[in-house]
Design a protein around this nucleic acid. Structure first.
Length: 288
DNA sequence: CGTTACACCTGAGGGC
DNA sequence: TGCCCTCAGGTGTAAC
């Protein structure tokens, strides 16, 4: 579900609600694919800690704790981080399922992490239906191979650097954009949208993209991500911002999940192809 | 090293 | 209604 804009919107909305607060109690779901650090160890380490920072690297969030430990978080495809009790029609549905409204509360099997604070509600919740999300505790000074592999943050996409990466690749340009080691934060929606804005067909081999096009592409990656952050991200199926508001960027999509619809620029029919096992959408007339 | 297929997990929606 | 299929915003790993 979440790409860089959704993660950044989550970070910005969450930060004022959690930074400076002290964790009073922790409830974790059972051990699963989701927990890189075993839940019992995680719960023990978080209790009594103050949250001092919340940063983003690509699609990862890093929560800094008072004693120098950090919590690495990834939302995967269906992860939702939010303050308990946030209100919106959409979140009410989540809350109903999650047992966060009404009484007595029924435990939601998809909420894997619940933090309560010493100064009272609202607590922080991490819900993730598919469990592709991740949580890992990092000791003070400890790094993580996932973070080490990340390329430049996509909000700082650099055209020259993109071009030099593209020269070495025979894979489609779309695959290059999705490579987190090249540009950290771009996912399926924004790769398609940036390629549309630049007039490049996602299937084109990366090494057939000119320097000039790479410069433009990097600019458009920044532009589309920035615009999406401004509109609160994309809420296509289940992204809910921590304040309970839906993002609005899905209303500005030009190609993603618009197969069969008319291109907004030339009225040709948007097509869908599969690249690297991911759906890709483009306008066959505007994109070459 | 680069590329590709597949696995991980759950739910929604379409066709019959 | 039930069943079976495909699809979903991601990423780690194995094999060529």
């Amino acid at each position: 579900m979440p790409e860089l804009p959704e993660v950044e919107v989550t970070r910005r909305l969450l930060a004022p609600h959690v930074i400076g607060r002290v964790i009073h109690s922790v409830r974790c779901g059972p051990p699963s694919y989701f927990f890189l650090t075993p839940p019992r160890r995680l719960a023990a380490a978080l209790g009594g800690q103050k949250i001092v920072s919340l940063e983003r690297q690509g699609k990862y969030l890093l929560m800094g704790l008072g004693d120098g430990q950090r919590v690495l978080l990834h939302l995967g495809m269906t992860g939702q981080l939010f303050m308990a009790g946030a209100v919106s029609p959409r979140l009410m549905r989540v809350a109903d399922h999650a047992g966060l409204s009404g009484s007595p509360p029924t435990r939601d099997r998809h909420t894997h992490l619940e933090l309560e604070f010493e100064d009272g509600p609202p607590g922080l919740r991490f819900r993730d239906v598919r469990k592709f999300g991740k949580v890992r505790l990092l000791a003070p000074g400890q790094g993580d191979p996932r973070l080490d592999k990340l390329g430049v943050d996509a909000l700082q996409a650099d055209g020259e650097q993109l071009f030099s990466a593209a020269r070495k690749r025979s894979a489609p340009i779309k695959t290059l954009l999705l490579d987190q080691g090249v540009l950290a934060g771009v996912g399926n929606i924004y790769a398609d949208e940036a390629l549309f804005m630049t007039g490049i067909r996602p299937t084109r081999g990366a090494r057939r993209v000119s320097r000039k096009e790479c410069l433009l592409l990097a600019e458009n990656v920044q532009r589309v991500l920035t615009r999406s952050i401004e509109t609160g991200g994309s809420s296509i199926s289940d992204f809910v911002a921590p304040d309970g508001q839906d993002g609005q960027f899905q209303n500005e999509r030009q190609v993603y999940a618009r197969e069969g619809e008319a291109c907004g620029r030339c009225a040709a029919t948007i097509v869908r192809v599969v690249i690297g096992q991911r759906s890709s959408h483009y306008c066959p007339r505007c994109q070459r």
